[in-house]
Every structure is written in C-alpha cells, then in structure tokens.
C-alpha cells in the first residue's frame, strides 16, 4: 500500500504531524481516531483523504440511538412480512431483505474506500466496543443468510470524537490517535488564504487580530475556531466592512460566538473599552442558579 501516500488537498491544509498520523494509520491498516476542538476540520479530513487518493467516500453519522449492528446490516423483516401478505416478491429469498449498513458498504466496495465514522462519542458507551471485532478482522457474518461479508479492500477508517464520553480502552488500544490542535497564526492565515485567495492582506490581518483577541478572553464557554473564522471572513467580505472597523467594532460578532453569555461578555468589553470589568466567579456562577 506504499503507493497510497496522503499529503493534503488544495482546499485542506494539513500539518506535518497530522499527515504522518494519516499515513501511519493507512500503512498499519488501523482506524485513525481524530479528536480536537470543534471546528478544526476533523470531519473535513476524511473528505480530503478520499479526494486526494481518489477513493469512494462513505459517511456514517453516529447519533445517540445508533447501534453497532446498523453499521453492518439491517434485516428488513417488516418489508418481508408485507411482501408475504400482499407482495409480488419471492419472500423465500431472504437476501433481498438484508440491507448492508455503512460498514458493510465499505467492506463490499470494489475499490478501497474511506469510511468516516463521525462523532463516535455520541453513541452508547458500548458502541465502539461492539465494532472492534469487525474493524479488526474486517469481516462479519449474517446468520439469516449464512453469508460472510469480507472486506475486498481494507477501508481507510477515520473516526472522529468530540470527547463527550470517554472511549473504552480496548477500542483506544487499536486506534492510531491524533489530536488536531488549534493552528498557530501562520497556519491559520494560510488556511484562510486557501479559502479566500483574493482577500486583501489588510483585512486578513485585522480580522486575525480581532479573532485572536476574542479567543484570548478568559471564561468563554465556546472558543471560536477555524470554521467560525472562515464564516466570519466570508461575512466581512460580503458585508463590505472596512478593515479599520474590524478591531474596534467586531461586526457580525454572532458569527464567531454562538453562546449567549459569551456574546454578552464580549459586547460588554468592546463598549467599556479600557475599563474592563473583572467578573468575579460567583456572579458568573449565579447565572446557573
């Protein structure tokens, strides 16, 4: 598999260590577990790998109700019952009622595919453990049909987590792990440039200054990250904001900050320029009483 070396795509800048982690995971055939602040491009990464290597891209979005079994296959007994009573189809052929899930799809794909298991921590605690075996040996058995689905090509598995729950140790042991840290200023500037090649340098510099100021404020509930900055720059461009106003007024603040309390706090600081009130802990805590 040495010919498959990932090195980023035109619209997704990848840091050295992340690129290394991707290539290590692919070479070892292990799932790649990605963690990081929301909005640092965890989900985009899988898309970028698929694009760069020209592989089919399969997304499995995990919800709190998702069961591991659904990723393998679903046996549609209801349809079969319906068909047996009113139907035209041959109900003795159970195969017709077996529908492969996302993992099954990735296994049976003709070409090697990229499978994104998005936000794995949303599901039940047992979910990752339930998938261990299948991800390890890359096949599963369907008792209804006596069939075994084996991966033709070991898919590149990318798993993202927002750290809402701890993942089980047994699962972690098998993964290659990478934490996408918030990019430094230089990297962030080049990421913005990739998305807005025509951007005036002046506007970019001012926007970055204001953005880092907001990020540096203590006690924010949700710090803005890359995706918020990109949206904000877009808003600034569309709104035709003069660069000089960006730092002093921070227009479209709602694009950067998504939580009420954060919004109020920053507004207060902008208006009481200089005399920044230090919020004492207990008054901040009282809001939750």
């Amino acid at each position: 598999m040495d010919h498959n070396i990932y090195s980023g795509t035109a619209d997704y800048l990848v840091s050295d260590d992340l690129r290394n982690a991707v290539n290590i995971a692919m070479a070892l055939g292990r799932p790649l577990l990605i963690k990081g602040e929301p909005g640092t491009g965890k989900t985009m990464l899988a898309n970028s790998i698929a694009q760069a290597l020209g592989m089919p891209f399969i997304i499995w979005n995990i919800k709190s109700t998702t069961k591991a079994q659904e990723g393998l296959y679903v046996y549609d007994t209801v349809q079969r019952l319906y068909d047996s009573q009113f139907g035209e189809n041959d109900v003795s052929d159970i195969k017709r009622y077996i529908k492969l899930g996302k993992l099954g799809e990735a296994f049976s794909s003709e070409r090697q595919s990229v499978l994104l298991i998005d936000e794995v921590d949303k599901a039940d605690l047992e979910f990752p453990n339930d998938l261990l075996w299948e991800l390890d040996i890359m096949n599963f058995y369907i008792p209804e049909t006596g069939e075994t689905i084996t991966a033709r090509q070991r898919p590149v598995v990318v798993i993202t987590s927002n750290a809402e729950k701890e993942l089980p140790d047994a699962f972690l042991r098998r993964c290659i792990f990478h934490y996408i840290s918030f990019p430094d200023e230089e990297m962030l500037a080049s990421i913005v440039k990739v998305h807005f090649p025509e951007l005036e340098p002046n506007l970019l510099a001012e926007a970055m200054k204001a953005f880092y100021w907001v990020r540096s404020l203590p006690g924010l509930l949700k710090k803005p990250s890359t995706s918020e900055l990109l949206d904000w720059v877009q808003a600034l461009v569309v709104g035709g904001i003069h660069p000089e106003k960006i730092v002093s007024e921070i227009p479209f603040l709602g694009v950067i900050l998504k939580k009420n309390q954060d919004f109020d706090q920053v507004l207060k600081r902008i208006h009481s320029a200089g005399g920044v009130q230090r919020q004492t802990g207990w008054t901040a805590g009282k809001k939750y009483l």
């Binding site: 050295d16 260590d17 290394n20 290590i24 070479a27 577990l33 972690l172 792990f177 934490y179």
Partner: peptide, 28 residues
C-alpha cells in the same frame, strides 16, 4: 514495533516522534 519494521518512522528521530506518539498516546 510493527510500524518500525515497516520503516514508517522514515529513519529519523522526528519521524519516530510522530509515529510513536500516534501509536502509543490515545488522549491529548
């Protein structure tokens, strides 16, 4: 060890740094 055997560290110490971190460390 398997990864080293496959030469994934690229023979350099920094390669080894990233490789061992990705394989051994499971939490930021």
């Amino acid at each position: 060890m398997e990864a080293l055997n496959r030469g994934l560290s690229g023979g350099s110490l920094s390669g080894f740094y990233y490789l061992s971190r990705a394989v051994l460390v499971k939490s930021e």
